[in-house]
Write a protein that binds this DNA or RNA. Structure first.
Lengths: 202, 202
DNA sequence: CATAAATCTTGACAGCGTCAAAATAACCTC
DNA sequence: GAGGTTATTTTGACGCTGTCAAGATTTATG
């Protein structure tokens, strides 16, 4: 009985996918720093260097994880924007809530996707860039739409406005997952304040 | 010839201060991750374990560095707020610019002060908390003042408003120092957009 | 079936934080 | 000043990390 996936089943049987799944789980519980290739290999039941035949190094593994995170995140964002039965303002509110919720429920993944581990050293793989850059650009696209819908000021440059509004929810998300804002019970009120400040009366 | 500092000159001559200075320099050029106790000891010219008699572990060294950062940062903020010859709006503008400038010129220090390294694991020393918490609280105090001066909406709860406005400049700072916004030439325009969005016509 | 390629393992190395024990230097009291 | 205490520093060691090299094993290919 052997599987027939994208990669064929050799000794292990699609070790790459197994590693990615285990890595996400390990990262979620031990953090990015706590995710070591050796612990990962041990968890999966292979030798220390086995992962090196599927990922060039640790960075490439992290990029692969982040890429999956972006794909997941992108579908979540799309779902909200598809709720056309809601008013633009209500949709934006939901987007803000969902953004903060995603970050606080997946702090390590969020940190990997939007943090310095990958981007500061400029070590993103092409595969990651191909999903991450559109996600960044997505913020600008949505902002333009919000301006057209009249809930955000039309006179502001879309790029600048996107940078600031995204910066706001990103900043709040970071303060939460980095442990500066310990009190997560205030999340709702913070989101509401964001909407109050940025959204012009519908 | 021996110095007479807070700590007396033993074998080395105030190793603690020397370590802190070298650690700040090493961190600035190699990053928080690149700062190792062994390299630090080597740079200063002592054995690997010598620093352990002045700092319990690496975390305590990092906390000491961060504490100095907060003190420096606090004096910078105070200077701006003391410029009473400027209008409240102009002062806020300068505060935003200065905040982003400080972060982008001292990215590693900013990351240490406001990042997850220390706060997420909840390993801050009491000495650090004593300077950091007032700095956090400072944001709320200033926000209240801005509300009283009529440049920020009075109807918003001061704490929430502070969290969101601080979150905004913190988020932009993070996007810059983490390498998401590579283009630092847009800093001025982003700051201006922040002021436009948050400040009510003077 | 034989050769090539992919996959996995064992061995090894340097770097890291940190503990234990020993060595050294300064201080303090008598 | 002498002797003992304390502060400081060093050497040795351990386990953890990422990663390379070389060999072994399994699968694919011609």
């Amino acid at each position: 009985m052997k599987e027939q996936n994208t990669k064929r089943a050799y000794h292990h049987g699609d070790l790459r996918v197994t590693l990615l799944e285990a890595a996400k789980a390990l990262m979620a519980e031990a953090g990015i720093e706590g995710l070591s290739l050796r612990k990962l290999a041990d968890k999966v039941g292979v030798s220390r260097t086995a992962p090196y035949h599927h990922f060039k190094d640790k960075n490439e593994l992290l990029c692969a994880i982040a890429a999956e995170g972006f794909e997941h995140w992108h579908t979540l964002a799309d779902e909200i924007l598809a709720k056309t039965h809601l008013s633009p303002k209500a949709r934006y509110r939901e987007f803000v809530y969902e953004y903060i919720r995603y970050a606080s429920e997946n702090p390590e993944m969020y940190d990997l996707m939007f943090g310095r581990t990958i981007w500061k050293q400029n070590t993103a793989t092409d595969a990651l860039k191909n999903v991450a850059f559109p996600s960044f650009q997505y913020q600008v696209t949505m902002t333009k739409k919000w301006q057209e819908q009249g809930i955000m000021p039309k006179e502001e440059d879309p790029l600048r406005l996107a940078q600031v509004t995204w910066g706001t929810i990103h900043g709040i998300a970071r303060l939460l997952i980095d442990g500066i804002y310990a009190d997560t019970s205030h999340i709702d009120e913070m989101c509401e304040t964001v909407v109050n400040l940025f959204i012009q009366d519908k």
